[in-house]
């Protein structure tokens, strides 16, 4: 093989490989940002559930809107092969991707119905815990316990 062509091919391969790795770490970062946002929005709402924070309908609605929006984006951010690197995602995700995606679909639809059902503190306390139960279900099966 022509030496220059070989060098070009090698460079191309390295760049291609690096791009793939970068894209992968990108996707990990993206999903972590969305999930961290879930956590940050849920924390004060948890305080309202416990009674340590005052009830704030707007904050509850903001959390539910974010769940509904991001839960639709998240399944695509777990492509095959993105189980390595700085991630707590367990291989179980890709062994049962349908179940994993189904939990996000359930979260999105639960959040949408709760958004409509929650109008005051009483309806909040009745409806919110059911929405976030899916978070725990998913963590139990698909997230590394560090």
């Amino acid at each position: 093989m022509n030496r220059r062509l070989a060098a070009f091919a090698a460079t191309f391969a390295v760049v291609l490989g690096a791009t793939a790795v970068m894209a992968q770490s990108d996707v990990i970062k993206q999903r972590q940002t969305l999930l961290k946002e879930f956590g940050d929005l849920t924390k004060p709402v948890g305080g309202m559930l416990r009674g340590s924070n005052a009830f704030d309908l707007a904050a509850v609605q903001a959390a539910l809107d974010t769940y509904a929006k991001s839960a639709k984006e998240l399944p695509a951010l777990f492509p095959a092969g993105s189980d390595t690197g700085d991630t707590d995602a367990l291989p179980a995700i890709w062994q049962d991707k349908a179940k994993f995606d189904g939990l996000f679909a359930k979260l999105a639809s639960d959040a949408t119905s709760a958004r409509a059902a929650i109008t005051d503190e009483a309806s909040f306390k009745a409806n919110f815990p059911g929405v976030i139960r899916t978070c725990g279900t998913c963590h139990d099966s698909f997230r590394k316990k560090s």
């Binding site: 956590g39 849920t42 924390k43 709402v45 948890g46 976030i132 725990g136 963590h139 316990k145 560090s146």
Partner: peptide
Amino acid sequence: TDDIIVYGPMTPVASDATMARASALHQQ
């Protein structure tokens, strides 16, 4: 913490790494 709505009494002053380690140990 479960990173959802359960936050133990010392979580307000603990780092994310400490909470992750303690939460794992609590299960282990």
